[in-house]
């Protein structure tokens, strides 16, 4: 019976751990509903006034818009780059390609504060500081390795005979890529796109270094909101931030499940 006890303990442990991980994020929800003017837990009384403020404030709306543009662009760029890299490395697969792969994963391993300083130094002479292009580029560099990982995982299960079959039937490399390889690794591509989106959507460290006035993302505005005053609008923004992340996650899961299903049936 020890194993039964152990597995029960394990299951309880897993839930406790999960609760421990998500509670800090969920705290924002009640706080955002407080009727008070400062960050506090509501006591029996709820109000949507901070959401109202969030959605009527030009500053907050502009930050939403900017974060959206940057995250979507980053996701698109990183997905294309990461997918191409993954396919290239998969195709040449040799000892050297493994070295190249390790090198390409560096942005994930290097502490973000160090990347942030590097971007700051580099973006000054390039004139990219405090611009959409600068942020999108920096986020893309951080996010592309994630796409590389998820797409490589998909490629590892791809049957190389399918590629041979396609060529044998007369398809060029490009046609084979478009009609056989890409559809087979779709789940990995979707997952990579999602991770890239989320990374950019809540990125703060690099953003703090390389943006100032003209680009003011949502995490950046929240950061400032917390530091300068205790306006609960920040909590409302956090709730919306989480909601959009969850929605992006759900959409991607549905899409990759649908593409997996279309193969199985």
């Amino acid at each position: 019976m020890t194993s039964g006890l152990f597995s029960k303990f394990n299951r309880v442990g897993a839930w406790v751990l999960l609760l421990f991980l998500v509670t800090p994020a969920l705290i924002a929800i009640p706080v955002s509903l407080t009727p008070k003017r400062f960050l506090s837990m509501p006591k029996g009384e709820f109000s949507l006034r901070h959401f109202e403020k969030l959605f009527t404030s030009e500053e907050w709306l502009s930050s939403f818009f900017q974060s959206g543009v940057i995250a979507v662009s980053t996701s698109a760029l990183a997905t294309v780059l990461g997918t191409l890299c993954a396919i290239g490395l998969w195709r040449v697969s040799s000892r050297y390609s493994e070295l190249v792969r390790a090198f390409l994963l560096l942005p994930l391993i290097i502490p973000q504060i160090i990347s942030a300083m590097a971007f700051y130094r580099l973006w000054i002479p390039l004139g990219l500081l405090d611009s959409y292009a600068g942020l999108i580029l920096a986020h893309t560099i951080l996010a592309a390795p994630m796409v590389l990982i998820t797409v490589s995982a998909s490629l590892a299960t791809f049957d190389p005979k399918l590629e041979q079959a396609s060529k044998n039937l007369g398809a060029s490399n490009w046609t084979t890529m478009r009609r056989v390889i890409l559809p087979s690794i779709k789940p990995g591509v979707f997952a990579g796109a999602l991770f890239a989106f989320i990374l950019s959507w809540d990125e703060i460290v690099v953003t703090l270094f390389i943006s100032k006035f003209s680009v003011y993302t949502l995490p950046r505005r929240m950061w400032n909101g917390i530091r300068e005053n205790t306006d609960p609008t920040v909590a409302a923004a956090a709730v919306v931030l989480i909601a959009i992340t969850v929605i992006a996650f759900v959409i991607t899961s549905i899409m990759s499940r649908r593409s997996a299903k279309s193969q199985a049936q």
Binding site: D159, K161, L162, Q164, A165, S166, K167, N168, L169, G170, A171, S172, V180, P183, S184, S259, S262, Q263
Partner: peptide
């Protein structure tokens, strides 16, 4: 002549049908 220009049909071990 590269494989895709040879115009030879091939039935692979395990068939290699396109699953999608």
């Amino acid at each position: 002549v590269p494989a895709e220009k040879r115009n030879f049909g091939m039935v692979f071990q395990g068939y290699a049908l396109f699953p999608h």
